[in-house]
Design a protein around this nucleic acid. Structure first.
Length: 575
DNA sequence: GCCGTTTTCGGCCCGACTGTTTTCAGTCG
C-alpha cells in the first residue's frame, strides 16, 4: 500500500464517522493522520518497519496499530465494520457542494438515499419536498452542485489556476473604487493543484464590488453574495469552471485577513493555538486581547507578535515552518536562475528552432541554455538518432559562433531503457556538454525495478540530471513507485542532480521529495522542459514548488554560472 | 483520537453566509 492508499482509508473513516455523528475532535484526529501520511516524504511502509509510526505528529497508539494492520493485511477491521453500517456509496454525496455529513445522514436515514444516482432520482421525483432542512432553494442548489461535480470534478493544476486567477484579479482591479486586490488561498501558497480561487480586496463600496463581481461575464452561478463575501462559479473555457471567492476587507485588518485566507487551514489552526496559549484570539480581523487589537495591518506584525518569523506563503502547511527561528534569506527565487537545462526543439517534439529558443532565453536574461531533444527510443516524440544528434551538436557549435549574449549547450534527454541502460553509446554522450536521463516507458514496474533502473542510469559519468524522476502527470497519471531516498542518496554520491521539472503538468519532483533529496545531499536542477519559447515562463511553477520544499539558492544547479556548471560536469566525468 | 513548560484528564480555532427550524443549525473555508 502506498502513502496515498493509507491516507485515503483514514479520510474515509473520518467521513463515515462524521455521517454517524461521531465526536468532531475524534473525526479531526483521523483527518490529521490522513494528511500527515499524505504529506510524508518517506514511504509509510518503511516508517512502519522502523516502528516509528507513533512518532509522527498526530499519530497515537491507536492510529499506529491501524496503519500496521492496513500495511500487513491490506485491510482494516474497523473500516469493514463501519461500512457494514454506512454504505460506501454515501461518501460521494459529501462531495456535493452544500451537502455535509448531517444532511447526508438525513437523506440516508429518512429517504434511503445511498448514492449520487439515488439523490438525482429523488430530486427529479420530488421526494425531498417535505424533508426537514431541504427547502426549494436547497434542492435547487444541490442540483447545480451535482451538475458541477459531474462536469468539472477535481482540482485544477497550478498553471491553470494561476492563469484564471490572474485574469480575475485584473477584472476586479478594474472595478470602480477598488484599491487593492491580492491572491490568497492555495494559489498564493503555490500548491500543485488548486480547488478554488480566493481573492482579497480593499474597496470603497463593499456591496457594490460584490455585486459587480457576481455580475461578471462568464459567471455561471452565484453561490453566495453577502456584504463582505461573494462566491461564484466562473467559466474560464467551455465546460470548465472554477469557484472563485472574493472577500472585501478593510485596510486596517488587511494583514490579518491575508494571513487568514492564505491558510493553510492546518497552519492557521496551529497559529490560533499559539495565540490562545497567550490568552489572545486570532481571526480574520486581527490578533486581539479582549477589545485590544495587538496586530492586524500586516502579516509580519501578526507573526512578530507571536514571536515567529513571517513564513513565505509557500511554507504555510504546518510542516516545518513553526520550527524555524528565522526564514532563510537565500530561499530560491526566480532571480537566482541563470539558465534552463531541459528543452525541446523542432528536431524532436518542440515547436521552435534552437535559435528561437536561444533568443527567447536571452530575452529572459539567461546566460545559458541546454538543448535536450529526445533520444531515438522516444519514437513517438521524433527522438533523434545518433546520427541526427551528431549533426545537431555541430549545428549548436555554429549557432554559438554567431549568437552572442547566451551560450547554447548541446545536450540530450536520453531515454533510460529497461534495466537502466542508456539510449546512446558513451562515445556519443561524451560529445555532449550536459545530459539528462529520463524514464518515459515501462513505468508500471514495481518500486524495486524502477529504483534500480534509475540508480543504474546515474552510474554513467555522462548523465548530469535525472529528468522528471517519478514520471507523474498531475490529475492524469500517478507517480511511479520510486524509492526517493535511495535515489537521492545515490544522486549525492555520484554527483548527479535530480530535476525539478517546472511544467505545470508535472512538478516532478514534488515539494516534499525535493526537500528530502536536498536533505540527502542531492543537487536539484529546476528546468522547464519547454517545448516552445513561451513555456520558459513555467519556471515560476518549479520555483514555487522548490520554495515549498525549502530549497535554497545553493541547492540548485542552475543558479550557478556557466563555468561552475562546466566544473559540475567535469567532476562527474573525471570520477 | 491525540496530547502535555497549566501533562494522564479535559480540553481541542473562528466567523460568514444560507435557508428556513421564528432564533439557529449546517456548511464552508
Amino acid at each position: 500500500m502506498t502513502n496515498a492508499d493509507v491516507a485515503r482509508v483514514f479520510d474515509e473513516i473520518a467521513d463515515i464517522l462524521e455521517i454517524k455523528g461521531a465526536d468532531g475532535f475524534r473525526v479531526n484526529s483521523y483527518r490529521r493522520v490522513a494528511r500527515q501520511i499524505d504529506d510524508l516524504a518517506s514511504d509509510i511502509n518503511e516508517v512502519a518497519a522502523r516502528g516509528e509510526l507513533a512518532k509522527l505528529p498526530g499519530v497515537g497508539k491507536s492510529s499506529a496499530e491501524k496503519i500496521n494492520e492496513l500495511l500487513e493485511t491490506g485491510e482494516l477491521k474497523m473500516r469493514g465494520e463501519l461500512l457494514a453500517e454506512v454504505p460506501e456509496s454515501l461518501l460521494e454525496l459529501l462531495k456535493v457542494p452544500g451537502l455535509g455529513p448531517k444532511k447526508v445522514a438525513l437523506l440516508w436515514r429518512e429517504r434511503s438515499i445511498n448514492s449520487l444516482g439515488d439523490l438525482k432520482q429523488a430530486i427529479e421525483g420530488g421526494k425531498l419536498a417535505d424533508l426537514k432542512g431541504f427547502g426549494k432553494k436547497s434542492i435547487e442548489q444541490m442540483s447545480h452542485g451535482i451538475a458541477f461535480l459531474e462536469s468539472s470534478a477535481g482540482r485544477r493544476r497550478l498553471g491553470t489556476a494561476w492563469a484564471v486567477g490572474t485574469r480575475l484579479r485584473e477584472l476586479v482591479e478594474a472595478m470602480p473604487g477598488v484599491r487593492r486586490v491580492e491572491h490568497a488561498g492555495s494559489l498564493r501558497r503555490g500548491c500543485e493543484t488548486v480547488g478554488d480561487l480566493d481573492l482579497l480586496c480593499v474597496a470603497d463600496d463593499a456591496e457594490g464590488t460584490i455585486k459587480a463581481f457576481t455580475e461578471l461575464e462568464d459567471v455561471t452561478q452565484v453561490l453566495a453574495a453577502g456584504g463582505t463575501k461573494g462566491s461564484i462559479l466562473y467559466q474560464y473555457r467551455p465546460r470548465r469552471s472554477m469557484q472563485v471567492d472574493l472577500r472585501i476587507v478593510s485596510e486596517e485588518s488587511f494583514g490579518a485577513a491575508w494571513q487568514y485566507f492564505t491558510g493553510s487551514k492546518e497552519h492557521n489552526v496551529r497559529l490560533r493555538e499559539l495565540a490562545v496559549k497567550r490568552g489572545w484570539s486570532l481571526n480574520e480581523y486581527g490578533l486581539t486581547e479582549g477589545e485590544l487589537v495587538i496586530a492586524s495591518r500586516t502579516e509580519e506584525e501578526i507573526y512578530a507578535a507571536l514571536d515567529l518569523p513571517c513564513p513565505p506563503p509557500e511554507f504555510r502547511e504546518d510542516r516545518f515552518e513553526f520550527d524555524l527561528k528565522e526564514i532563510p534569506t537565500d530561499l530560491i527565487t526566480r532571480e537566482h536562475i541563470r539558465g534552463d537545462l531541459h528543452m525541446h526543439t523542432v528536431a524532436s517534439d518542440g515547436v521552435n528552432t534552437i535559435e528561437e529558443m536561444a533568443r527567447a532565453a536571452k530575452k529572459l536574461g539567461y546566460e545559458y541554455i541546454c538543448v535536450t531533444d529526445h533520444s531515438a527510443s522516444s519514437a513517438i516524440a521524433n527522438g533523434l538518432s545518433a546520427d541526427r544528434l551528431s549533426k545537431q551538436i555541430e549545428e549548436i557549435h555554429a549557432i554559438n559562433k554567431r549568437l552572442k549574449g547566451v551560450t547554447v549547450w548541446a545536450g540530450s534527454e536520453v531515454d533510460i531503457l529497461a534495466g537502466g541502460k542508456l539510449d546512446f553509446p558513451d562515445e556519443l554522450l561524451a560529445e555532449l556538454d550536459f545530459a539528462i536521463a529520463s524514464i518515459h516507458y515501462g513505468m508500471g514496474s514495481d518500486i524495486k525495478e524502477n529504483t534500480q533502473r534509475t540508480l543504474e542510469a546515474m552510474q554513467s559519468p555522462y548523465i548530469n540530471v535525472i529528468g522528471h524522476p517519478t514520471g507523474r502527470l498531475l490529475t492524469r497519471r500517478d507517480a511511479m513507485p520510486l524509492d526517493i531516498e535511495a535515489v537521492a542518496k545515490e544522486a549525492a554520491r555520484t554527483g548527479t542532480a535530480l530535476e525539478m521539472n517546472s511544467s505545470h503538468h508535472r512538478l516532478d519532483l514534488k515539494d516534499q521529495h525535493a526537500r528530502l533529496a536536498r536533505d540527502c545531499g542531492a543537487m536539484i536542477c529546476i528546468n522547464t522542459d519547454a517545448h516552445a519559447t513561451d513555456q520558459f515562463e513555467e519556471i515560476r511553477f518549479g520555483i514555487v514548488t522548490a520554495r515549498r520544499g525549502g530549497l535554497l539558492k545553493g541547492d540548485v544547479v542552475n543558479t550557478q554560472t556557466a563555468a561552475q556548471i562546466r566544473k559540475f560536469v567535469e567532476r562527474k566525468r573525471s570520477g
